[in-house]
Design a protein around this nucleic acid. Structure first.
Length: 262
DNA sequence: ATGGTCGTTGCACGA
């Protein structure tokens, strides 16, 4: 069985229902993981998704902030939702497909502007969220699992438009990258996107504040697809759907895709 | 060094 998957920070699933439908219609991933739905679960506009064959959903939501959902054409059951760092936020949901693969969908806290937990509580919450993820994977090793989401960290030099300029900018600081790598190591997670696209600048997010995001191209790779070691060889065909950043009323993130032959 | 843009909500805050 082969299935394709996409992860996309949608920045309001209700406002952007039209481009979610566009993505599902044009690219037809079997599974779509969304972050920043900014909606209670019962207000997610399901009808159009269902009409396109996405008849399964697991989600956590809250009014106005955060929120994660997994839409699937493949039968899927909920496989847990955790409140890492005990923030009381809807930032994680897991689903299990009928082929036994578990998908974790995360929206890691952005972390505020100042990369110092003593003066910026949000930065501490981000680090604590990642530490809790690490400890959960140490306590229970994930198998046959995929982890996706807006992890709000660009770990590599070629995941940002200017490594040196961003070393003190939240999302690319050494302490965040260290926490990120500890999560990966604890769960035997492997970076599917970079296994498929090992060389070159690669971004999934461009700020709304740039005058011309495409020409300036000051992006960061904040959105990730990981797989556990037991299924990493099944992954291929990774890509970032960059042109979705230029759609009508876009999200500031582009969808990231991968395919798994399992 | 600064300001720049969105979305949701309620008359700011988070990203």
């Amino acid at each position: 069985m082969s299935f394709s998957l996409a992860t996309w920070n949608i920045n309001s699933v209700r406002l952007r229902e039209p481009i979610v439908l566009k993505l599902l219609g044009e690219e037809a991933p079997d599974v779509l993981c969304l972050q920043e739905c900014k909606s209670p679960v019962d207000k997610i506009p399901l009808e159009g998704f269902q009409a396109l064959g996405y008849t399964h959903m697991v989600a956590r939501g809250q009014k106005g902030y955060n929120g994660v959902a997994i839409l699937s054409k493949i039968p899927m059951i909920e496989a847990g939702a955790e409140d890492f760092a005990q923030l009381g936020h809807a930032r994680h949901i897991a689903g299990r497909l009928e082929n036994g693969v578990t998908i974790h969908n995360h929206y890691v806290p952005a972390g505020g502007d100042v990369p110092d937990r003593d003066v910026n509580e949000k930065f501490g919450q981000k680090l604590d969220y990642l530490t809790d993820m690490r400890d959960a994977f140490r306590a229970s090793a994930p198998e046959k699992s995929i982890l996706v989401g807006d992890l709000n960290i660009a770990p590599r030099e070629d995941d940002v438009w200017d490594h040196k300029k961003l070393l003190k900018i939240v999302s690319h600081t050494p302490i965040e990258v260290d926490h990120f790598n500890q999560v990966m190591e604890a769960g035997d997670w492997h970076d599917v996107t970079r296994a498929d696209i090992p060389e070159g600048l690669l971004y999934s997010w461009w700020s709304y504040r740039a005058k011309d995001w495409d020409a300036a191209d000051k992006g960061r790779r904040l959105d990730h697809v990981w797989a556990t070691g037991d299924i990493k060889a099944a992954a291929h065909s990774s890509r970032v759907l960059r042109h979705a950043r230029g759609w009508e009323k876009p999200s500031d993130h582009a969808p990231v895709f991968a395919t798994f032959d399992l």
